[in-house]
Computed example of a mutant assay.
Amino acid sequence: MKILQLSDLHYRSHYLPATTGYQAMLTKMENPLTYLDRAIEKAKEMTAIDLVLLTGDLTEDGQIADYRFLHEYFTKKFPDTPVMVTLGNHDIKENFYQGWLKNAPSSNYYNFVSEFDPFYLVSFDTSVYGNADGTIDKAQLNWLEEVLSAHQDKPVLFMTHHHLIAEQYATLNLPQSDQLWQILKRYTILAVLNGHTHYHYHKTVGQIPYYTADGLSFLGQDEGDGIVRFVQHAGFSLYEVKAGQLKETAREIVTSGKLLQKVDMRSC
């Protein structure tokens, strides 16, 4: 089974006009759809894709119309392929429920389990709009424990948005990462896939493969004293599940890495 992971689109139909700060950086960024198109075309050239995973921050600021557009976009790009989503800190749950799912608005965590022949996919929501580091409560941990306990006849592919390893990036990992790992290590986890940092990372935690995908918008490089150097950065990851194991088969960058702007994030 071949899996395509895409992450951190930060899509907005029109970015807000600005001359300084983070918003000004966004105005200098090329539209993420340019690189999303390129990533999907290249991935399809490389392999047949059986499953698409979107690991959060679909939008820049959670507009209903943007979710509607993206849902139609992915339906056209992958008419016969499941596209599964988890939410990031730039996503607004209520608007996602309306725009992507076409349901009534809800502030509930967007968690689900889907069954595929080689594994169960567990999508686990760590997002709170406006909270960059994400958070989960006791009810979330209880939900995960119950789900993993009830689905032990196959390995579980676990996807979420926030990174779970402190040393992998300058920004803070999910505050409840240790509690989450304690639960995951008690079960047969095929792999953990996530986004948020916009930069590729791989490690094995215990016996669990852990992968962070490149984003499809920009990359922030910490220069110290609150200064972040933003560059255009877009990429994707491909995986294969075979004989009960997940292996990353490709990591491709589809953008130039040009400088967008340096931003003092202390004033944002």
Rank of each mutant, 00 (worst) to 15 (best):
A132T: 10
Q179A: 12
L144D: 11
W143D: 14
D133M: 11
S114P: 01
L157Q: 00
W181S: 07
L184I: 13
H162V: 10
T160I: 09
Q152D: 03
P155G: 00
A132C: 07
E115I: 02
V113N: 00
Q152N: 02
H161T: 05
I165M: 02
S149P: 03
Q140M: 10
Q152F: 00
V122S: 03
P155F: 00
Q179H: 04
D125W: 01
F116T: 02
S177R: 11
L164S: 08
L141E: 08
H163R: 12
L141N: 08
D125C: 05
V156L: 04
A170N: 09
I183D: 03
T160M: 13
D125H: 02
L148G: 14
P118H: 01
Y169P: 08
V128D: 04
R186T: 07
K185T: 06
Q168V: 05
Q168K: 07
Q176D: 11
L148H: 12
A166M: 05
H163V: 13
S177P: 02
T126G: 13
K185E: 15
L121V: 02
I136T: 04
S123W: 00
N173V: 06
M159V: 05
I136N: 01
I136H: 01
L172V: 05
Q176P: 15
F158V: 06
K138E: 07
I189L: 08
H161W: 02
L144P: 10
K154L: 02
L184V: 14
E146V: 06
